[in-house]
Design a protein around this nucleic acid. Structure first.
Lengths: 229, 229
DNA sequence: CAACCGACTTGAACATGTTCAAAAGCCGGG
DNA sequence: CCCGGCTTTTGAACATGTTCAAGTCGGTTG
């Protein structure tokens, strides 16, 4: 028997080791010398396997980057736990989450550009809007859902329901900014977060004004419409 | 003698012809078979020159795409003239400009993804935020300046000054959406424009409400700050 | 006119992501 | 023990963007 496939984790016994080996080697090289300078041949050589073997497990170089992305996502999630358990203040929660993303991602800032490049292509599985990244995207939105739910924010239910996704979009915007930010210490991105978050808070509180409320409702309507159809 | 070309246009005589030839051939092939499937060898062969020669004029395949982008930009500019001469209604002007962009770009929708991919990389000259594309960017913002200036829109001067750039950002967002839009006839993007523009108009008019005014002023402040520092 | 200079052109060579047919292990059944 | 069928592994071959040393060509200068 031994048809292997019953175990949760080590799906295919031996091969799984090779897979891990290739991935970890690749990630290390990416970090050490950047994505562009790391060749598939180098990865294979360093891992002590053949090029073809690397392709047996990862159908492309991009695919290896995908794995890195998942890694990052998990790290961020972990980093937010503490923050989301603590304060009830909306701005603090949001700032904390965004900041922690920045921290987790900082070591990869330099080669994030390349990642971004691949992610931009609509058909790429790396695209944040793609089918394949739906799990990662939802995990990310889930974090923002917790930001909202655990906070003291008072909002009309419609908007509140839509908010996590909007905050995720905000995060995408910040990432876009971050990728382009070459100020030292990522000063500008930090500044962006520091000044944007309170502003968002204030904007959200404006929805109590009747005249504003109507427009916002329509805005939510448009967002839903665009998402669906 | 026969130096034939003293014409305004042709900077370096003969070579300029070759340059044009290569470019037009490339653009044609891009349109006919997509960017990815068009090889530099094919372009060279079709144009009747050597590969090296193509590289003499265009330092990379991407560079050829850059040229296409400029081409598009010019076409759009031309298409907007009529619209901007006509109506005074802000929403009509804005809708017109966005729609005409859609029309001009439609033939390239399929291969725009690839373009987008390159443009996403921060260091790429194709990036809408890059140094190299500053002229194109400013030309584009200029269009939106005309949208605002020729319109009946009443706004606090601060916001009014910032608005063209914000509208340009909106356009970037729409492009992002457009690239991912595979509904037939680009229905979804059209819908997005149709429903977003009036909403923006309403949002802008909200700035008359005192409570809103303060927040918006701060928002403008943040934008300026982020742009500068 | 011959030498020369710089713009232009060439094609072979290179680097690297990717593919693929074949070999090597591995394993349970006859 | 050997066979047939799988997973895994190999390395050479391929496709394609890019580079480069060397050639060509047209005009300018002595």
């Amino acid at each position: 028997m031994t048809t292997l496939t019953d175990v949760t984790d080590s799906a295919t016994a031996k091969g799984e080791q090779t897979r891990e080996l290739i991935l970890s080697t690749a990630l290390r090289l990416f970090r050490e010398q950047g994505y562009g300078k790391t060749t598939m041949r180098a990865i294979a050589a360093e891992a002590g396997v053949s090029v073809g073997n690397a392709y047996y497990y990862y159908s492309s170089k991009e695919h290896l980057m995908q794995a890195y992305y998942d890694h990052l996502q998990a790290q961020h999630r972990e980093a937010t736990v503490e923050i989301l358990a603590g304060d009830k203040s909306f701005t603090k929660r949001l700032t904390g989450v965004l900041r922690s993303w920045l921290e987790v991602s900082a070591p990869y800032h330099e080669f994030a550009g390349t990642f971004f490049k691949s992610a931009a292509e609509p058909k790429s599985p790396l695209s944040p809007f793609s089918e394949q990244s739906q799990p990662a995207r939802e995990a990310s939105i889930e974090i923002f859902r917790q930001v909202v739910e655990g906070s003291d924010l008072k909002l009309p239910p419609d908007l509140r329901a839509e908010l996590p996704e909007l905050l995720w979009l905000l995060q995408m915007g910040i990432v876009l900014f971050w990728v382009h930010d070459d100020s030292e210490g990522l000063r500008r991105t930090h500044l962006l977060i520091t000044s944007t978050v309170p502003l968002i808070d204030r904007l959200l509180r404006l929805t109590r004004i009747p005249g504003v409320r109507g427009v916002v409702n329509d805005l939510v309507g448009v967002i839903r419409q665009v998402k669906t159809i």
